Computed example of a mutant assay.
Amino acid sequence: MKYLVTGAAGFIGARVSEKLCQAGHQVVGIDNLNDYYDVSLKQSRLDKLAAFASFRFQKLDLADREGMAKLFADEQFQRVIHLGAQAGVRYSITNPFAYADSNLVGTLCVLEGCRHNKVEHLVFASSSSTYGLNKKMPFATCDSVDHPVSFYAATKKANEMMAHSYAHLYGLPTTGLRFFTVYGPWGRPDMAPMLFASAISADKPIKVFNHGDMSRDFTFIDDIVAGILLCADNVPKPDPNWTVEQGTPASSSAPYRVYNIGNGSPVRLMDFIAELENALGKTAEKIMMPMQDGDVKATWADTDDLFKAVGYKPQVGIKEGVKAFADWYRGYYGQS
């Protein structure tokens, strides 16, 4: 099978590409290698992938309309896993146009490439951030996601609607996955686990927002990747009995599905920090801070529909996952 993986130098994209190559697939990975965070970490992920003869990388911006059209026409992908995006909730407050370019225009270029080249299945990244002001726990795909609290979340909601329109108009099978707080080896430096590990290792204080009264459905990277690959093999079909009035917004009369992908077991932020302190062998000095703009107090994924569809069941608990992350962190950054 021939795959396109967008965001292939990213945290999730690199691991997905690695697993696809190990399974014997051909993978073309693209990424614009922007400097939102340390480019050397992105390059290190790509260096790992260079060991696979079945992997090829092309530096390409998602919003490059002509470049993307040529890529799709030349390569004739069978499946596309679209993980490339401008990430980060808080950065979307200060630089919203980066999100419009990458997440909106870029996703449109992916959809157009899939449409014109008969891609058999598009799997794309959405986010738990789409739940916004929703306070019902756990978050379920039957819930409303019409009230985002960040522009980043708004672009992810828009991606779902864009994908549905292409599924409806052109019969393009699409599956959207709302990721819940992914962590683990090779993680993003702008996310809490890496920020905490960096500060704790350097004997610097960490900022703990909402005075620590937060929880997240922390999900280990390998569980996320396993779910993505299960979904890639599960091509959605139209549901002829679906109606707007009686059906879930996560399904359709078009070949379209949206799933939560998370651990399904939220962890208090202070408990996560304690596990990381234990794994690093150091106690953090904590500066208690108010809630940040665009943030939410808690996330918790209802993954029942994903289990029913593909048998998805996370395997890695928080203690095991944090230890694996801490071991990688010390090795990569040369910490004793």
Score class of each variant (00 low, 15 high):
44 S>H: 11
43 Q>G: 01
120 E>R: 12
71 L>T: 03
306 L>W: 01
271 D>G: 06
90 R>D: 11
250 A>Q: 02
134 N>E: 11
148 P>G: 14
214 M>V: 09
191 M>R: 15
253 S>L: 07
263 N>A: 10
100 A>C: 04
259 Y>G: 03
80 V>P: 00
315 Q>F: 04
226 A>S: 13
316 V>A: 10
110 V>T: 12
182 V>H: 01
239 D>Q: 12
194 M>I: 04
104 L>Y: 14
21 C>A: 05
330 R>T: 13
11 F>P: 02
321 G>T: 14
335 Q>V: 15
66 E>H: 10
196 F>W: 13
112 E>S: 03
290 P>L: 09
202 A>S: 15
146 D>Y: 06
11 F>N: 05
173 P>F: 03
125 A>R: 02
235 V>F: 08
89 V>G: 06
263 N>S: 12
86 Q>N: 06
204 K>D: 04
99 Y>N: 04
304 D>K: 14
13 G>F: 01
294 G>R: 12
130 T>I: 15
76 Q>M: 05
242 W>E: 04
260 N>P: 13
195 L>F: 00
118 K>E: 15
210 N>M: 08
179 F>A: 07
311 G>R: 07
304 D>N: 14
74 D>F: 10
293 D>F: 04
199 A>S: 11
92 S>Y: 05
288 M>Q: 09
204 K>M: 10
113 G>D: 09
41 L>R: 15
10 G>Q: 06
200 I>E: 08
208 V>D: 07
333 Y>P: 01
73 A>V: 00
27 V>E: 08
177 L>K: 07
66 E>Q: 14
270 M>C: 08
286 K>I: 13
43 Q>V: 09
16 V>L: 03
216 R>C: 04
250 A>H: 00
49 L>G: 12
158 A>L: 07
232 A>E: 12
14 A>E: 00
213 D>E: 10
221 I>A: 05
257 R>L: 04
15 R>V: 13
77 F>M: 05
98 A>T: 08
210 N>W: 02
243 T>L: 05
38 D>L: 05
327 D>V: 14
119 V>F: 03
302 D>V: 11
9 A>W: 00
170 Y>P: 02
301 A>T: 12
226 A>D: 15
321 G>Y: 08
317 G>R: 02
120 E>A: 15
208 V>R: 10
94 T>W: 06
233 D>T: 07
310 V>Y: 12
33 L>M: 14
132 G>S: 09
202 A>W: 09
220 F>W: 08
245 E>M: 08
182 V>Q: 01
48 K>Q: 14
78 Q>E: 11
260 N>Y: 06
147 H>E: 14
5 V>W: 00
8 A>Q: 01
156 K>G: 06
